[in-house]
Amino acid sequence: MSVASALLVAAAVVALLPLVSLVYDLVHFDDVLRRAAERTAASPQEISQERSANRIVSAVAIAVVLLTSAALFIPALWLRRGSPVARAFSCVAGSGAALCCCGGYGLSLAAQSSPSTSELQAEVTRLSARETPAWVPLMSLPAVLVVPLAITAVVLLLLPPSNRFFRQPPPAPPPQPYGGYYAYPANHPEEPTNPPDSPDHPPGNPPRE
């Protein structure tokens, strides 16, 4: 199923694009946090908690993105061999990736709509939105294609026509015994049909020339 394999590979590549925004935020967060703390006169404890929370959330998000991409890409390589196991793993990975992306989008929208719990968090959010280049969030927009690509691949793998591609050939039958012994191929046509000790060639009397 080259089409389903190509769709899964495309979904795996697109799933990696949010790494640009995650890594950019992780690299520049300390500087944004420092300036936000200076403007709000936040305590060292609030600064430490905000830094730890950002690192944990970023690490979890990066791990989820990498695992989602790997779960889509690895089974897609096995599909070309017609393996039923790869077909099953691809269906599970495609469905899981679609659910994971939908859940991630929902959590992201909920986090953006919820009000900040402290003045420091509000200032960090404001500085990040103002100073982050426009191309950084735009790089994550194609990630919305992961869901339709993965679902389309799963549907193609589950359609009845794909059963012919993933049907395994029957194993070769073992050699059948003949009269208690295994049958062997007949002598080659070029070999003599009469053994040396046949009536035409009695033992001890070689044929005369």
Rank of each mutant, 00 (worst) to 15 (best):
A93F: 06
P169K: 07
A88R: 11
A61S: 15
S140D: 06
D30K: 11
E209G: 03
L159R: 12
G204I: 13
R208V: 14
T40N: 04
Y24T: 02
P75L: 14
P185W: 12
R208N: 10
S113N: 14
L109N: 12
S90W: 08
G179Q: 11
S90I: 03
A12Y: 05
S21R: 15
L19W: 03
P171R: 07
T117D: 12
Y105T: 11
R130W: 01
S113A: 15
L77N: 09
V14F: 05
I151Q: 08
P161S: 10
R208I: 12
H28C: 01
Q112K: 12
E131H: 09
A134C: 03
V13P: 01
H201T: 14
A70W: 15
S48G: 11
A6N: 12
F89V: 06
V13K: 03
E50M: 13
V14D: 02
A88N: 05
S95P: 00
V136D: 11
A129F: 08
E190A: 11
V136Y: 06
V144E: 05
S43F: 08
M139A: 15
P195R: 07
V14L: 15
S43W: 07
F165P: 01
R55M: 07
R81C: 06
R55L: 09
S114P: 07
R39W: 00
L26P: 02
A10G: 12
S198W: 09
A10R: 03
L141K: 06
V13S: 02
H28M: 05
P196G: 05
E131F: 06
I74K: 08
P175F: 01
P84V: 13
D25Y: 11
D31N: 06
C100S: 12
V27I: 15
C100R: 04
R39A: 14
V85P: 01
Y105M: 14
S69Q: 04
S52C: 00
